[in-house]
């Protein structure tokens, strides 16, 4: 075998190596230890009615989304229309966790952007956020009828996330049990 005939193969292997290495760098899939575990319980004040509280237990028996957001977060603005759309057409209840935010700013933001949330609770000091392992906003958790976290999405959701990931899982979880 003459060496020169191996040159194309060598070049190709180098290229493939790069591409393969590229594949292993996968920033958005951060395995969450919480997936498959019960959602950490909380009882927090509602955004629009601070004297009332709301918690994970209130959602038992339903499949629902917990969306972590803040009025200071620009990416949240980007994903917001999809939440509004899902809450409107998808028939899935979405609970907002207003994270490290100011009440007035948050209320104003919802007024301007539309309010997809069945209820919004305030996590002013970010303690609940820590329990949920929140890296930053926005993050979205899919929680089943038994209060178990089934999926966690980091960063803004988009049309693809809704259609390819969330909707199928929601449909499946709603059917189950």
């Amino acid at each position: 075998m003459k060496a020169k005939f191996l040159v194309p193969l060598a070049i190709f292997l180098a290229l493939a190596g790069f591409l393969g290495y590229g594949l292993t760098l996968n920033p958005s899939v951060v395995p969450s230890p919480l997936v498959g575990k019960p959602a950490p319980a909380f009882q927090l004040a509602k955004l629009d009615a601070p004297q009332e509280t709301f918690g994970v237990d209130d959602m038992r028996g339903q499949v629902w989304l917990l969306n972590v957001w803040a009025s200071w977060c620009v990416s949240c603005r980007q994903e917001h229309p999809y939440l509004v759309e899902m809450a409107g057409t998808g028939g899935i209840p979405v609970i907002g966790l207003n994270y490290k935010d100011e009440r007035q700013a948050a209320i104003g933001w919802l007024r301007a952007q539309g309010d997809p949330y069945l209820a919004t609770v305030t996590d002013e000091d970010g303690r609940v956020g820590i329990e949920y392992g929140v890296y930053g906003t926005p993050e979205t958790f899919l929680i089943d009828k038994d209060g178990v976290i089934r999926y966690k999405h980091i960063g803004p959701i988009n049309r693809d996330t809704v259609q390819k990931v969330l909707m199928p899982m929601i449909a499946e979880l709603s059917r189950a049990g």
Partner: peptide
Amino acid sequence: DENYMPVEAQYALDKAHQANQTVQ
């Protein structure tokens, strides 16, 4: 199109996002 965010824009947001995290 409405699904496709310019990669570079997304990258900038992610960077800032990570920066926020470390501060938080």
